[in-house]
Structures are given as C-alpha cells and as structure tokens.
Amino acid sequence: MEKGKSLKLAALLAGALFLFIFPHFAGVFAVLLLTEILIFALFALSFNLLFGYTGLLSFGHAAFFGLGGYAMAFMVQHFHLSMLPALAISTIVAALGAAIIGFFSIRRDEIYFAMLTLGFGMMIFTLVHQWRSLTGGSDGITGFEVPVLDLLVKKLSLFSPWAYYYFSLVVCLLGAILLWRLTLSPFGLILRSMRENPERVSFVGIDIKLYRWIAFTAAGLMAGVAGALFALYDRMASPSMVHWTMSAKPVLMAILGGPRVFLGPALGALIFYLLEHFITQYTQSWMIFLGAILVPIVIFFPQGVLGTLIAWAQRLIRREGHGE
C-alpha cells in the first residue's frame, strides 16, 4: 500500500513538474497544443463527475462548455472586461444554465437521461445558431483580444501563447483540485454510492434528485470554465462548441483514460490530442483510427488506460509483497 502511494505521488510530481517546466523549452506549436489539452482535460474531468462518479452519462455536456465560451466572448467583445471578472461571469452563466437544464434532466435515468441531455444540449445549439444578433449565428463571435489579467497590483498581458498557457495551467489545476476535493468528500461518497445503486441510497435517507442536481450543476460550472478558456484560446466562440459532437469528446476522453480513476479523463484528453496530432500528419481520416482504438478499449480495457495501468501496478506490488 505504502509503495503504491509513493509511486502515485512521484508520478503526480513528475507530471506537475513537466507541465510547469516543459513550455520553457518548447516551441509555439507545442505550447498551443498543450494549452488545448489542458482545457479539454478540465472539460473531461468535469464531465466525469457525472459519468464516472455519479453514473450519469450526459450527452449534452458541451452545452455548458459553449455557454461559458459564448459568455466569455460576449463579455470581452462588448464590455471589454478584464480576465477575472469575465471568467467569473462566464462561470456563473454556465452554472445557471446547468442548474436549469439539470433540474429537468436529473429526473430521468440511464438512456433517458442521456437523451434528455442530448435534447437540451441541441436546443442550446439551435439557440446560438439562430440568434444571430446575440451570438453571430453560424459565424460565432470573433475578433476579440485576450483580456488582460488585472491582479490589482499588476496588470499582465496574456497575449503570448506562453502567458496564456501558464494562466490556463493555473486555472485548470485549481479547477481539477476543486473537483478532486469534491470526489473525496462525504458528498463524493454519496455520488459514488448513487452510481452503484441509486435506489439503495434513497432508502438510507438521501434525496437522490437533490444530489444529482448539485453534481450536474457543479459539472456544468466547471465545463463553463473550460469553455471560457477555450473561447479565448481559439479567439472565437462558435456553434461547434455546443454541438453534440463536442459533447461526445469528453465521453471519449473519459472512456479512453479511465472513468473510475480521477485523472483518467485528463490522461484521456492527452492521448486523444496526441493521437489526433500524430495521425493527422499522415492522413485526413483520423476518426477511423480513433474508432479503431476506441472499440478494443471498450471491449478489452473497460477501465481505460489509466485504470488498467493502475490495476497492473497494484498487481505487481502485491506480487512483490508476497515474494518478500
């Protein structure tokens, strides 16, 4: 057990160190790619609060990613807010959206929950697609600058990819830590218990609708943060951010990395983008490869890459323990 813990700590430290030091030596392309991976890692982690921890497969999570992104783009373009207030407002907008959609969606289970979230997500999509005066329709909102980070004592420009990378890194780490704390709390235990057996949870005195609603809102809120970061990264908020194919991304990432391990979806995001990056260098049809990777993972490694790795490591450690 102790050995497993120190191994885990070492891996986490190495990962953090890499994220802070690597960009110093990397070119602009790598920094941009890493920024996008970070943002999607947070998006996937927020989705997994519902999927891996609560047992709810949402197919409309992009709605909140998009709400955050559009709110950010709107605030920056029309009101020229600085970074922190704009980020705060985008987060609130996404959380409100999640609270409203969640209020209805959590009333259904399983496939019906997936369909309901899909429906609501696509309603948001058609809304941003049609409401040209507010959202720019199919063109989206474009042509804004990354706002300055006003820390009261100092104003920092986030224009350079490096500056924006470090800002995103800090925000995503904070977001991930908050989500992680959530999973370790009594609330997190109730979520995991609901994943296993919602009926039993209600028979020990838990109002499962309330807990699902809170989880849904928290997940939507964090997706909003990721969406806001992405809109600035992309210099654009477009309807594709809200489309159901965007909702499928965190699902794939979570499955790829492992939905039962906290950092699984983040690793899934990394794998997803690295694969996309390398495969698209050789061929346009990278979706075929994604599908060809997804299918065996679903069949043979349902715990995902990180889940499987951890299971192997545990087995190795146990075997060593027996040998001594």
């Binding site: 908050l178 704390r181 959530l182 370790l184 709390s185 009594p186 609330f187 997190g188 235990l189 109730i190 838990i206 807990y211 809170i214």
Partner: peptide, 8 residues
C-alpha cells in the same frame, strides 16, 4: 452529505 470539500 452536503459537505462538499472536506475530505471524508
């Protein structure tokens, strides 16, 4: 159950 951030 509604204690959200304090570790179990």
């Amino acid at each position: 159950g509604l204690s959200l951030f304090k570790g179990l």
